[in-house]
Amino acid sequence: MAGTRFWDWYGDGSTYVVDVGLACCTLEFEAATYGRTPAGIARIEDLPSRSRVVVVISGTVTDKLTGPVLTIVSRIRQVVPAAAVVAFGACASAGGPYWDSYSVTKGIDQLVAVDAYVPGCPPPPDALATIVDELSERERV
């Protein structure tokens, strides 16, 4: 799937973070990547299977996009079964302010197992850095 761009989050090959950018929250994800290293991984299947992977779902999960989002997550979990999924922002967590829409899935956890829910509309970039640190069991520097 073209366009899945992985970040070597700590620059040491230990943790790869990828954004499924669906809506506004993806801009905060981008801000959280400033100063970080792109991983240079062209395909999901090229992920080192022993690495830690965090898949960040940023933004509103519309019914129409549930197929592609599920495909991305399941392909990643095939290569790295322990890949963590983070629902970033209110929409990915529970539908957010669009919970009542005719075309929105009320949170990505309706479809995949979620390891962390980050509230916010949008959350600040710092909130993403904190949760990746926690999932990597690292102390905040």
């Binding site: 129409k64 919970w99 009542d100 829409s101 005719y102 075309s103």
Partner: peptide, 21 residues
């Protein structure tokens, strides 16, 4: 264009009720 193929209805008509609410 935007709605899924299996969606039934015309959601922006004002008599289309937001069923979730």
């Amino acid at each position: 264009l935007l709605l899924s193929d299996d969606y039934v209805g015309a959601p922006l008509r004002k008599d289309a009720v937001l069923a979730a609410r």
